[in-house]
């Protein structure tokens, strides 16, 4: 192997960055995490995640189908833990990934993220830190690679399975307990004196699309600036 020198840093990584797994990055075991490709304890991983979420621009949670749809027992609780997490990140947005189809006619990045067009869809590339949760691993991996190729977004994955080499910080086998542990770590960092970047705008922000919907308006996406 090439050893573990390869670092999974935020992009843009260029035309076609390699899959981190092919550069020697190995998934962690339960109880550990990956930070930029290196094995870390779960606690250290959570602290990195918490710091990035509090300090980077436009923190966004991308919940996938496995938490958006209450399809089996435990999902509602996990979904609740995601909302608790969101409430601790001032200025956070929640943009869902409700399905994986290549959406026609075009993506509205204020309404959804979609694995078939992610770097066009992470809100005009203004999101500099995001959390994937409840996305099937195959689609998460594809999306993560594309985000790293084309944007400077710091990607965090709370994976219900084995984790993701292509995200900058990844925790495997994450259920509601791990999500709550991240929330707790965020609280802890705040107690330690870290002032969140959006401390003045607490709570979850709605995207313009969500705002319009909540007011019963039919919202049209703004034309993409050339």
């Amino acid at each position: 192997m090439n050893g573990n020198e390869y670092r999974v840093k935020p992009g843009p990584e260029g035309l076609l960055p390699p899959a981190a797994a092919c550069c020697g990055v190995v998934l962690s075991e339960k109880g550990q995490g990956l930070v930029e490709g290196a094995l870390k304890s779960e606690n250290d991983t959570l602290r990195v995640m918490a710091r990035e979420l509090l300090t980077r621009q436009n923190p966004t949670i991308f919940p996938g189908p496995l938490v958006l749809w209450a399809w089996r027992e435990g999902v509602a609780d996990k979904a609740a833990s995601v909302l608790e997490l969101a409430h601790e990140i001032p200025g956070v947005r929640i943009i869902p990934m409700p399905d994986y189809r290549p959406i026609y006619p075009k993506i509205d990045p204020e309404a959804v993220i979609n694995p078939c067009h992610p770097n066009l869809t992470i809100w005009h590339n203004k999101i500099e830190v995001c959390v994937f949760i409840g996305v099937h691993c195959h689609f998460a991996n594809i999306t993560l690679k594309m985000i790293r190729a084309g944007t400077n977004c710091y990607t965090i994955t709370l994976c219900h399975e084995a984790g993701h080499e292509d995200s900058m910080a990844s925790l495997p086998f994450a259920d509601a307990n791990q999500v709550r542990a991240l929330t707790e770590t965020i609280r802890q960092l705040k107690r330690e004196g870290l002032r969140p970047r959006y401390a003045d705008t607490p709570g979850i922000l709605l995207t313009a699309a969500q705002e319009a919907l909540s007011q019963g308006l039919v919202w049209q996406p703004a034309p993409v600036a050339q």
Binding site: L16, P18, A19, A20, A21, C22, P65, W69, P98, D99, Y100, R101, P102, Y104, P115, C116, H117, N119, L120, H138, N141, I142, T143, K145, M146, A149, G150, E165, D166
Partner: peptide, 30 residues
């Protein structure tokens, strides 16, 4: 999801479609 084209036919001829197919192939190697 209920709405799933799991085998996502890539319908567009643009860079994102190419990139998605490339990422998909990389994922197999990964």
């Amino acid at each position: 999801p209920v709405r799933i084209a799991r085998d996502a036919p890539i319908q567009k001829s643009n860079f994102i479609s190419y990139q998605m197919h490339a990422a998909w192939q990389q994922e197999i190697h990964a």
